[in-house]
C-alpha cells in the first residue's frame, strides 16, 4: 500500500532521504562534524523509538529509560576493558543485561500506577547510575574510555565513520519497522488497550500485566542496543549517560516529535538535537530558551510536531479549492 501524499508524509519521506544521503553531502562538503552530530542523533532517535513503544503506545510513563543507554554502553566498555572486543559477545551481553534490568524494574514497577510508576522507574535508573559511579575498576565517576570499537567480521569496520553511520541508520530503520509490526500485532493491540483503559481490558478478559512487562523488556533491550552503539560512537561511556536528566531528554524527544506514531520520536530527536546545536550557537545560555519552549509545547502542542504537520496538512488541503 502506498502511503498517501500528505504534507506529513512528504516531510517524513524527505527526512528519511536526507538521513540516507547525509554522508554523501558530508563527504562533498568535507564536514566531519555533521557526520558526528547525525550519527549521535540517529542513535538517540533509536533510544527514543524504543521509549515510544512503552510511553506512546503503552502509556507507561517510564522516567528511567536512559539507564539502558548506560547498561548497553557499559557492557561494551567493561568487556573491552577486560580484553573482549568481539562484537558477537559484546552486543548480546549488552542486550541481555538491558533485558534483565528491564525485567526486574518492570516486574516491580508495573505493579504500581501513575506517579509511583514514574518515580520508581526514575529511582531504579538513579540506582544504576550510582552503582556504576561507585565501581572504581571501570572508571567510577570519570567514566571509561573504550580504546577499540566492537569487532565484527570483515569488511564491517565500526571505526570507519561512514560504515558506522550506515550501520546505525540501518538499525534505526530496522527498529522502526519492528515497532511498526509490534504495535499493529495482537500484542500491540493489548498494550494500546491497556494504555487507553486498563479496567476495561480486565473486564473483557485480559491480564495486561504480562503484556506490559514484555513491552517494557523489549523497549529496554532496544535501548540497550542504542547504548552499545553510543559507546562505540563516543569511544567512551560514563555514568552521566544514565543520569535522570538524560531520561528526561528522551521523553522530550518522544513528546516533541509526537507520541504514539512510530516515526514521531525520530522527528523529535532530530528537532531537539539540531535545535540544541542552533540555540547553543546563538547563546551560551540556550537552555533558558529551551526550558520555556518545552513548557509551551506541553501547554499548546500536545500532538507534537507530527501532530502539527498532520493538522497543517489538513488545513492546507481544505483551504485549496478542489
Amino acid at each position: 500500500m502506498m502511503p498517501a501524499l500528505t504534507l506529513r508524509n512528504i516531510v517524513v519521506g524527505a527526512l528519511m532521504v536526507a538521513l540516507i544521503l547525509l554522508p554523501v553531502y558530508a563527504q562533498l562538503a568535507d564536514d566531519r562534524f555533521l557526520m558526528t552530530l547525525f550519527t549521535r542523533i540517529i542513535i538517540l532517535a533509536l533510544a527514543a523509538v524504543s521509549l515510544n513503544l512503552i510511553l506512546g503506545f503503552g502509556g507507561m510513563m517510564s522516567f528511567g529509560h536512559a539507564a539502558y543507554l548506560g547498561i548497553g554502553g557499559y557492557a561494551v566498555g567493561m568487556l573491552a576493558k577486560e580484553g573482549i572486543m568481539n562484537g558477537f559477545i559484546q552486543w548480546p551481553v549488552a542486550l541481555g543485561a538491558s533485558a534483565l534490568f528491564a525485567l526486574i524494574v518492570g516486574a516491580l514497577s508495573l505493579r504500581t500506577r501513575g506517579v509511583y510508576f514514574i518515580m520508581i522507574t526514575l529511582a531504579f535508573a538513579q540506582m544504576a547510575y550510582y552503582v556504576v559511579s561507585g565501581i572504581a575498576r571501570y572508571g567510577g565517576d570519570d567514566g571509561l574510555t573504550i580504546y577499540k570499537r566492537s569487532q565484527f567480521f570483515e569488511p564491517l569496520n565500526l571505526s570507519n565513520k561512514t560504515q558506522f553511520y550506515y550501520l546505525c541508520l540501518a538499525i534505526l530503520f530496522g527498529a522502526i519497522y519492528l515497532v511498526r509490526r509490534l504495535v499493529n500485532s495482537r500484542f500491540g493491540m493489548v498494550i494500546q488497550g491497556a494504555r487507553s483503559n486498563d479496567v476495561r481490558m480486565r473486564a473483557i478478559g485480559f491480564s495486561p500485566y504480562r503484556y506490559k512487562l514484555v513491552a517494557f523488556v523489549i523497549a529496554g533491550t532496544l535501548c540497550g542496543l542504542a547504548g552499545a552503539l553510543l559507546a562505540n560512537h563516543t569511544d567512551f561511556v560514563s555514568p552521566s549517560v544514565m543520569y535522570w536528566t538524560r531520561s528526561g531528554d528522551l521523553i522530550i524527544m518522544v513528546v516533541l516529535g509526537g507520541m504514539g506514531t512510530v516515526i514521531g520520536p525520530v522527528i523529535g530527536a532530530v528537532t531537539l538535537l539540531v535545535l540544541e546545536e542552533v540555540l547553543s550557537g546563538i547563546t551560551e545560555y540556550w537552555q533558558i530558551i529551551l526550558g520555556p519552549l518545552l513548557l509551551l509545547v506541553v501547554l499548546f502542542a500536545r500532538g507534537g510536531i507530527d501532530g502539527l504537520l498532520t493538522q497543517l496538512g489538513e488545513r492546507l488541503r481544505r483551504g485549496r479549492p478542489s
Partner: peptide, 28 residues
C-alpha cells in the same frame, strides 16, 4: 497553575522545562 488537571506526563515535561530554565538562569 496551567498544568493542574493535566496528565502526569505534562507535569513531568513542563517542570523539566522549568529545571532547565532555573539552572540556566542561575548560571546567568
Amino acid at each position: 497553575r496551567r498544568l493542574y488537571g493535566r496528565d502526569h506526563l505534562d507535569h513531568v515535561l513542563g517542570t523539566f522545562g522549568l529545571i532547565l530554565f532555573f539552572d540556566e538562569a542561575v548560571r546567568l
